[in-house]
């Protein structure tokens, strides 16, 4: 009995070690004073200090955060409106077509999205930089938000809207007082997903950054190409931690949403 139970957990442990070992390897050497990734000499925060003293890097970090926050907020708004529009579409074939178009954006490789955006921006003459990165981030975040919000909208009983109308609510009241509060777990989830996707996107951003503008993932890539420096390790560690916090935040929020739902069933 004990053996059969232990085997799956050993397997899981191995999988996770393999998955996370490179990241922890990288984090481990970010504290190495020797400046290489093979022999650990002394513990140091030097690389982190270097990261924080590098104003160029700091500006890039700010760029990344601004892009991530702006694109996730805007794509949340667009995504929520889009999801509501999709659920309101009566014609089944049209609705499925919309959903499929949405999902294609999620499954298609980033490289293709990035390349096509580059072609698009060049074609219509948008200068590459902040604007082009923001637009393309919004573009790949919207489908994620739609996908996160849709289940909430679909489980919402249509009589709730009837009831609100019946109690005197205008269409706007219905949206603000009933629909948005009801789907708020999905909206928050979508927002956090969009935030993490935008923060760590490399492929799409790489195509559309141009020369004057950069985000962290693109910057790390170019640093790594120039030569191994442990500042990359320190920077990566920081990004890893930020992403980790976002995931934990998302987990806590979605768990609260689950609790609400469970309460609803046990009437």
């Amino acid at each position: 009995m004990g053996k059969t139970k232990r085997l799956p957990s050993i397997y899981l442990a191995i999988v996770f070690i393999v998955l996370y070992a490179p990241i922890f390897y990288l984090i481990y050497y970010s504290f190495n004073s020797a400046g290489t990734m093979h022999s650990f000499e002394n513990f140091t925060f030097d690389w982190y200090r270097e990261v924080f003293q590098d104003t160029r890097l700091f500006i890039i970090l700010l760029n990344t955060l601004v892009i991530a926050l702006l694109s996730s907020v805007i794509s949340t708004v667009i995504g929520v409106v889009g999801a509501i529009a999709i659920t309101r579409t009566r014609e089944k074939r049209f609705r499925n077509a919309l959903l499929t178009l949405n999902n294609v954006m999620i499954v298609s490789p980033d490289v293709i999205i990035g390349a096509s955006f580059l072609a698009f921006f060049v074609m219509i003459g948008i200068k590459l930089g902040f604007g082009s990165v923001l637009i393309s981030h919004i573009a790949f975040c919207v489908p994620i938000v739609v996908l996160m919000v849709l289940p909430n909208l679909e489980e919402m009983s249509p009589t709730l809207i009837d009831a609100a109308r019946d109690l005197g609510a205008s269409t706007w009241d219905v949206l603000i007082r009933v629909i948005i509060p009801y789907i708020s777990p999905g909206i928050l989830g979508g927002f956090f997903m969009a935030l993490t996707y935008s923060l760590d996107d490399f492929a799409v951003t790489f195509f559309v950054t141009g020369s004057g503008f950069s985000t962290l993932s693109v910057e790390i890539y170019s640093l790594a190409r120039r030569g191994i420096s442990l500042t990359i390790n320190a920077l990566s560690t920081l990004i890893f931690l930020i992403t980790l916090f976002l995931v934990i935040g998302y987990y806590i929020i979605s768990k609260q949403g689950m609790k609400l739902k469970e309460g609803g069933i046990s009437q």
Binding site: T159, L160, A163, A164, V178, P181, Y182, S184, L260
Partner: peptide
């Protein structure tokens, strides 16, 4: 309403 349609968030 048959399912009461109470607002779960209120």
């Amino acid at each position: 309403f048959q399912d009461y349609a109470l607002f779960p968030h209120l």
